[in-house]
Design a binder for these strands. Sequence first.
DNA 1: GCTCTATATGCGCTATATCCTATAATTCAA
DNA 2: TTGAATTATAGGATATAGCGCATATAGAGC
Lengths: 83, 83
Amino acid sequence: MTDLARTPKHIGNLIRRTRKKLGLSQAELGDKAGFRQETISLIETGNPATRLETILAVLAALDLEFHVAPRSKDDDAMIEDIF
Amino acid sequence: MTDLARTPKHIGNLIRRTRKKLGLSQAELGDKAGFRQETISLIETGNPATRLETILAVLAALDLEFHVAPRSKDDDAMIEDIF
DNA sequence: GCTCTATATGCGCTATATCCTATAATTCAA
DNA sequence: TTGAATTATAGGATATAGCGCATATAGAGC
């Protein structure tokens, strides 16, 4: 099961969804990833200027990882449903 | 076919590989993505502080996109082979 | 070797991440 | 509804992105 992530908002929503599924607060996730609650808040609200390594650390703390794949028409059809 | 990308270096290598496969110079890719040659250079060498939106724009210029998936044991086995 | 292109590096600039601290605003349960 | 927890926001400090511009290396071909 993989989720498409083309924009910072996609990624933020995905992180928030996963964090809540795991029953974590932003502060708890921040602890696990090595960042502050405020930083998690910014990421989840779609801050486009977040540092790459910060995103990677937060994903890892949620046991997630990025995969890179060709953009596909299937994804285009799916893209509106992400929110 | 998807590629695992757990670190800025993974992502940089992937971008460089794809760019060369497409016969583009760093400057040409920069043009397509809206950034400078120097910025592409930094990304390809694994700069961990690159802005998220910059990475996303460069991936899009290469017709690539991120997917988010659970970290898997299969990935752990594969991880050493990325370089 | 030499030349041309491609890539990496440097400086000064503005913008912003993240930290730290604090607090406002929102959500949720009792 | 109220009180506690959670999330969003703010200001000052430090670090660094990406810009523009310049240049130094590095590579590929002759």
